[in-house]
Structures are given as structure tokens and as C-alpha cells.
Design a protein around this nucleic acid. Sequence first.
RNA 1: GUGGUGGUAGCUCAAUUGGUAGAGUCCCAGAUUGUGAUUCUGGCUGUUGUGGGUUCGAGUCCCAUCCAUCACCCCA
Length: 422
Amino acid sequence: MSNQLRAVRGMNDLLPADSPLWQYFEATLRGWLKSYGYRELRTPILEHTGLFKRAIGEVTDIVEKEMYTFVDELNGESMTLRPEGTASCVRAVIEHNLLFEGGKRLWYAGPMFRHERPQKGRYRQFHQFGIEALGFAGPDLDIEHLLMTARLWRLLGLADCVRLEINSLGGAESRARHREKLIAYFLTHESELDADAKRRLHSNPLRILDSKNPAMQALVEAAPRLMDELDDTALAHFEAVKRGLEDAGIAYTINPRLVRGLDYYNFTVYEWVTDRLGAQGTVCAGGRYDGLVAQLGGKPAPACGYAMGVERLLALLVEVGVATPADAPDVYLVNVGEAATRFAMQAGEALRDAGLDVVLHGGGGSFKSQMKKADASGARYAMIIGDDEAVAGEVTIKPLRGDGEQQRIALAKAVEFFKLVG
RNA sequence: GUGGUGGUAGCUCAAUUGGUAGAGUCCCAGAUUGUGAUUCUGGCUGUUGUGGGUUCGAGUCCCAUCCAUCACCCCA
């Protein structure tokens, strides 16, 4: 065991027993995305480090201490495994001039990498699914995104275990103004700050508002509020988003302390959270990032989007007890004897031509042991072929589930039989 | 990255104050020599996460380390 090879910490194998749940989830996503007109964008997992530094922000936790960054020994370039999807998405949109013909609705999915201490619902390689709408001004797409996420919870049966929190961060000027007031306020109360807060005072004072330290609550409650700094445009935008939610009957709470860990957000931010996954309860988060396209060198364009943590959503599905769809074949092909195996190969192909899912028993074994495998496979039928059948060009069909008699018929008739029973 | 808890067969778990590592399940074979899911019988599986230490003797105590997990932190 000491020399045993293991997967890298925080990075998991997806085993066959679990893949049906992922496939069910992914299939649900595809249908749902199509119904809103979103189209897939796939970007490389590896990007130049500079992209994430510019997009996410130099002083964020992600960039400062969580990125898998390394030098490509072959050419000396600094590379980074993507820690999130938005930066790559915007980069690709700019690089290929996708906004030339107007706004774009895009989605992406895949592995992301952050070097954090692993915990349930938090892994070093984890999967995000996200959507980005670029080139659309105003609150329309913010609202669409919230409506579509709410629909997804209904589709997945999760509507009762997630709740929506929203906030507005306003524009850059509002945030700068608020930041100054916040620092001034905390400086006058510096003796009451805990160690975390003191550390953040100048690097990321907004984060102090997020503190869970009970001793800090009174201080935080009385702090200057960003909402008070919002200009008319930001307020009108926020009001429109709230109205959209109310029109759709989606419950929400305004959380003035909701802050994003990535620097590119402005105006609307939101999180869908659950209390059934412990400390890793944020299942979907997003908002508007109007400045990012220009910041990354593109022609200025408004944008908004969100990302979901796939592992967390699947954990929630398991918690709620979704029926995991079976992936059993229609037919398990039992074959004993050399001639029987050769005939069974042809029989299997004939059944697959007719659209059936067929597992052919491999590696020999007695009828008894093969029948046990047939049962364990979950197949509805066993098709039994011994040398007797092979010589006659016949097969024996035995129902393994429900009623029905075993019958021995010609292969061509068997194919017809399966076409009928589906 | 910080602190707490835990790690025994493929899986779920036992093992008295330190004294011979066990059960269920799974898998394999047979009862039923061409037929599963029930029943009965028999069989296989372990450097007790890893490496040190204390001891006549360590799954059990000590140290380190790895992994998981809970909270912090962070975030999806």
C-alpha cells in the first residue's frame, strides 16, 4: 500500500456506479438550455496565467493562493489551470469577435481547478456549469437568468431546498465611494476588529461585512451600506430585477452583505443557497460584469452570467433522494460453447441493428454463472445460445423480469419479437 | 492555509483494562451435469492507511505522515 498510486488529493474518479446520475443531470441541462436558446462554448482547460489575473483580480483569494499555476518548461510561459469559466469565455468571445453580430447567449461546462483544502462539496478539481449572456444591456438578462435557474430547480426537484439571495454592488464609482467610507468607518473602530478584519481592512474591506464572527456583528450591522451609495441607474436596474422576480413569483431575500469573491462583478449579484450541504451551501452564484469585456481588451459590452457547482448539486440530488436512472441493457446474451459464442456475436449485432442494447457475456462460464450475470445486469431478457441453438440457427429467449414463458425460436423471429416488445 | 474527529476484507462494520484479526455482504463452486433473483453447504479475500517508537506482546498507547470528514477560511 505504501507504494500504491493514488489520485491527486482533492481530485476524484467518477466511477461507473455514479455516472448515471451525472448523465441524468447533464441530459436535463441540455434540454433546459435549448429551451432558452443558449449555445455551447468549449474553451481550453489551460490558459495563460495573465488572463485570470486580469479578469478575477490580483488581490482575490483565488488568484493569490488557489490557482494551479506553473511554468511550461518547454517555452518558459506561465500557465494556469482554469479556476473558473467566465474569464476564458470572455477571452474567446473577444478573440473570435463573437459579438460582431449582436448579443450572445452561451453556456459552458467542465472541470475547474482550485488548490483549496478539500471538503465535501469542495474539491481541487471540481465541475462547474455556467452560462454567460454578453452584449445585452439593462436588466432583461439578469431576470432571464434568475427565471431559468428557478426552472432548473423545478426540473430537478430541488425547488424546495434552495433559496435566492440578491444584492446590488452598483457601479464602479459607487463601490469606490463606499469603500472609502467603509475603511474610514472601520478605522475609527479599529480596536474592535478581529484579526481577519484587520488583515482585510485595506486589501478587501467589503469582505469584512461577510464576517461570521458574532463579536463583529454589531459593528458590521452599523457599517455604511453600499445600497446607500447606489446611483439612480443602479437603483433602477436593481428595482427592475426585483420586479422581474416578483412577476415570476420567485421568492428572494435581499442580502446587503452578499459580496462576490471575484472583482469583475457590478450591479446585480446573487446566490442560490441550500442549508442541506453544511458549510458549502452555495449551489449557484452569478451576476453582472459589465466592465470585464473592455477590461480584457474587447470593445466594451455589457454582460452577465452565473455558475453552478455540479458536485454540490448532485450531492443535493442524492440528499433529496432522486431515483438514480438505471442503465441496464435490454438483452443479456448467454453463450456456452465455441460455436454458440460465434453465433451469439452475430445475434448480438442483429439485435443492435434493431436498436436494442445488448450485453454479450464474455469469457465463458457455465449456464448457471452466466444466468447470474444476466440477472445482475438488470436486463429484461436473457437470450440463451448453446451449441444446440447455434446448429439450428435458433435462440432461446427467457424473460428475467415480470411474466412470460421461455421460448426457443429462429434468430430472425427473435429480432421481430424484440422489435415488438421494444 | 488553521483547528477538531476518524481510517480494520472490494463494500458496511465488530474485536473487553494492550494478549491468536472476525461477521454480514459481494465474489467463486456445489446441492440442481443447459437456466437467474429464494434456500442450504463449502471456499477466497487483510503487511489493521503508511513510516517510526514504547512493550515480552500494539488494530488498541506515543510521534510523524497521507487520506477522508466537520468547522474556520474561501467559494461553485
